[in-house]
Amino acid sequence: MTSTSTAPPPSRLADDRFFVPIRPAALRVAAVTAVAFVLGGATSFGQAFLPAELASLANSASGWTMPTAVLVFLSARRRPEAALTGALAFVALTVGYAVVSGWRGFPFDPVVWGVIGIVTGPVVGVAAHALRRRPMEAAVGAGVLAGILIGEGAYGLVVVAETTSPVYWWAVIVLGAVLVVAMAVRLRSAVPVALMGFTTAVVAGGFILAFLALPLVFAAL
């Protein structure tokens, strides 16, 4: 009796575990990029309509990091997809902001922030995707995202406190702390929790230093 099984050989099954079909992945990336473009445009409007206490949401790195991380967390299936989605989302946010700002009569050159998005977007994307992974990866991912939030919150309170409301900066610090606590409850292991705390501190400090250096970067361009 001849077998009619059409199951792929074991080697094929092993390979398939590491790849996502091109079309679904491309559709997910395209959808997230489109949503990010719309959110970037909404950011421009937000600068005019948000209350003073929350106005910094429309003019902050965390204001774009949070939706990007959420979109990647919900959509990406593999690290390469998460990295690509993060980069494209950040660039789309910048371009969307530039398009709507120009339409409103406030021209904005997206080149510098687009480059920043290409560099930092993959980091945010992979960090968001890592929240779904094993404890050590999840710890690092949570530390990166929490570090960005806490770092920018501290930067806002210390460096731009005279021109912005402290409400938003405290809010992102609290949100970063909540992420750390929530992940610590999930991990329930000393080593990953310690790694998460270390990563949070390093990223927060690096964020502050990077933003302090940005004026020099803009001046050189």
Rank of each mutant, 00 (worst) to 15 (best):
V115Q: 04
W170N: 12
V217M: 14
A171L: 15
A42C: 02
V191T: 15
A82C: 07
V174S: 02
R17K: 13
P107D: 01
F49Q: 09
F108Q: 07
A7T: 13
G147F: 02
V38L: 15
S101C: 05
A61T: 06
A146M: 10
P67A: 03
W103H: 10
A92Y: 02
G197N: 10
S189Y: 08
A89E: 03
L54W: 15
A194Q: 14
L145E: 08
V32W: 05
A87L: 09
G41P: 09
P10G: 05
F106S: 12
A52F: 13
I22F: 15
G105C: 08
A87F: 08
L88P: 01
A36M: 14
A182P: 02
G96M: 07
G105R: 12
R104D: 08
N59E: 14
V174K: 01
I148R: 04
T65A: 14
V112T: 08
P80D: 02
V70G: 07
G197D: 12
A55K: 07
L195G: 05
T94R: 06
P80V: 11
V91M: 06
V100H: 00
T164Y: 11
Y168R: 07
A220M: 09
A82F: 02
L93Q: 10
G176L: 00
R104Y: 13
H129T: 03
P10H: 00
S189D: 15
V91I: 15
L13P: 04
A171M: 10
G40Y: 09
R188I: 01
A25P: 00
A128D: 00
G86P: 03
L39Q: 12
T120H: 06
T43I: 01
S44P: 06
V124Y: 03
Q47H: 04
V158C: 09
G102M: 04
A213S: 09
A210C: 03
T200H: 09
G96N: 04
P24I: 11
T200P: 10
V111E: 10
G206Y: 03
T6G: 01
A25I: 11
T6K: 10
A139P: 12
W169S: 04
F108T: 13
L88H: 07
A127Q: 04
V29D: 00
V180P: 06
P166G: 11
V144M: 00
